[in-house]
Each structure stands twice: as structure tokens, then as C-alpha cells.
């Protein structure tokens, strides 16, 4: 599963993994805004942004093709819109849609694949995201693995109860699927209650013990400066033609 790979990647060791999460988040924002505001991406600008990303991936010791291929999940959606815009007589926008959505997705992937999600969420919180959102994101991610596995069981159960018979049984299969989702809901709810009690028993009061984020050090600031400078250099140097 996709998120299992990302989770494994995010726990690696590299100069990028070691950077303080807030500086990575801000660097990501600068890159994304640079890409988003580049009017109609030229081949040179596209290559420049891609170069910045590839440098980042190389430093992070992640598999280059693995990251670039995973970011391609945005392409079907963008390509559909690109075709429509091309046919409507706006090829510049068509290219920009594909290029910008791909570059942005790859950048997000690079940062998420080098930052464990709990650190990412903590950085989000310290940059102003409401605590409740940051906490729910963390718990959601933590139980995503467990609940997805349960959903696989329920899918099998639904398929057993209402097998695929050519030409008939649509209503039966629909009801079986509704039953499976209902049971999954009830089990998730019961699991939530159990977790609630277990965490109360361990003294959880709605916040994690404050393991403060480490203060950013000189290498973190240098990283931020470099990433931002490179993004802006591409944006201002070749992006505004």
C-alpha cells in the first residue's frame, strides 16, 4: 500500500530527513508558491524546478524513480483537463496544468517522504494549525493502517455473502456492501471507544506530552535559505518570460 512505503521512507536517515520539520514545511511553501505563480511554465522553468527537486531527492537518499513515479498519480486527472484545454485552443495552459500539478505533487511527496507524519503534524501545529486538526490528523494516520486491514476483511465478507453472478444480484450485492460498511463503522466506533478508555487509563487528557520541537539550528536555516533561493531563482530567473 502507498502509505506504507511513504511511512518507511520517512523514517530513513539523510541530510534532508535530519532537517527541522518547520524549515522543511516553509521551504515546501516557498517552492509551491513559486511554481503556482509561474505564468505558463516554459521548458526551461520546468527543468529548473525539476532540477531543484531531483537535487533534494538525491540528498534524501530516496529512490529517484520511485519518488518521481509515485508523484505521477496526479497525471491522469491533470491530463484529462489538459486535453480539454488543448482542444479548447489553449495549449499553453494545458502544458502548465500538467507541469505544475506534477511538480507540486513531487515536492509534497519529497517533504512527506522525509518527515515522519507525527513530526509534520507538530510542525503544522506550531505554525498555526488548530491543535484539534493536528491531533485528528495524527490519529487518523495512526489508525489508517489498522482500519484499512479491517476493511479488506469486510470486503471479502461482502463478496462471500453476495457473489458476483453475471446478469443478476445487483441489489443483493448492494445490500451486502452496505452491511459491510455498517459493520466497519460499528467496529471502528467500538475501537474508538476502546482506545478512548485505554488512553484515559494512561492519563491522556487531550494533548500529547509536550515533546517540544527541537529548535532549528544553523544547518536547518542554511537548508531553508538554499531551497528558497533556488526556487526563487528559477521563478524570477526563467519563470517570468
Amino acid at each position: 500500500m502507498h502509505h506504507v512505503v511513504i511511512d518507511r521512507w520517512s523514517r530513513g536517515v539523510s541530510p534532508i530527513h535530519a532537517r527541522e520539520p518547520r524549515t522543511k514545511l516553509i521551504a515546501l511553501a516557498v517552492f509551491l508558491i513559486s511554481v503556482a505563480t509561474t505564468p505558463g511554465i516554459s521548458p526551461l522553468a520546468g527543468a529548473g524546478y525539476l532540477g531543484v527537486l531531483i537535487a533534494g531527492i538525491a540528498l534524501s537518499r530516496l529512490p529517484l524513480w520511485g519518488v518521481l513515479a509515485r508523484a505521477a498519480v496526479v497525471l491522469p486527472f491533470s491530463a484529462a483537463f489538459a486535453v480539454v484545454n488543448w482542444l479548447a485552443g489553449d495549449p499553453g495552459r494545458a502544458v502548465a496544468l500538467v507541469a505544475k500539478s506534477y511538480l507540486s505533487a513531487a515536492a509534497v511527496l519529497l517533504v512527506v517522504a522525509t518527515t515522519p507524519l507525527e513530526q509534520f503534524a507538530r510542525a503544522m501545529e506550531s505554525l498555526g494549525t488548530p491543535r484539534l486538526i493536528a491531533l485528528v490528523v495524527q490519529f487518523l494516520y495512526r489508525y489508517l493502517f489498522v482500519v484499512s486491514e479491517q476493511a479488506q476483511h469486510m470486503r471479502v465478507a461482502a463478496a462471500c455473502r453476495a457473489p458476483r453472478v453475471p446478469g443478476a444480484g445487483g441489489g443483493l450485492r448492494f445490500r451486502a456492501a452496505a452491511g459491510a460498511v455498517g459493520v466497519l463503522f460499528a467496529r471502528s466506533y467500538a475501537r474508538a471507544e476502546g482506545i478512548h478508555r485505554a488512553m484515559l487509563a494512561r492519563g491522556f487528557e487531550g494533548r500529547f506530552p509536550a515533546v517540544a520541537l527541537a529548535r532549528p539550528r544553523l544547518p536547518d536555516f542554511l537548508f531553508l535559505l538554499l531551497a528558497a533561493a533556488l526556487s526563487l531563482a528559477v521563478r524570477i530567473g526563467v519563470g517570468s518570460a
Binding site: V136, F139, L140, Y141, Y143, A192, E193, I195
Partner: peptide
């Protein structure tokens, strides 16, 4: 303390 439930 019900925040984990929302995540689930």
C-alpha cells in the same frame, strides 16, 4: 480525551 475517536 475523545479526540482519538475522531481520528479513528
Amino acid at each position: 480525551s475523545r479526540i482519538p475517536a475522531l481520528g479513528v
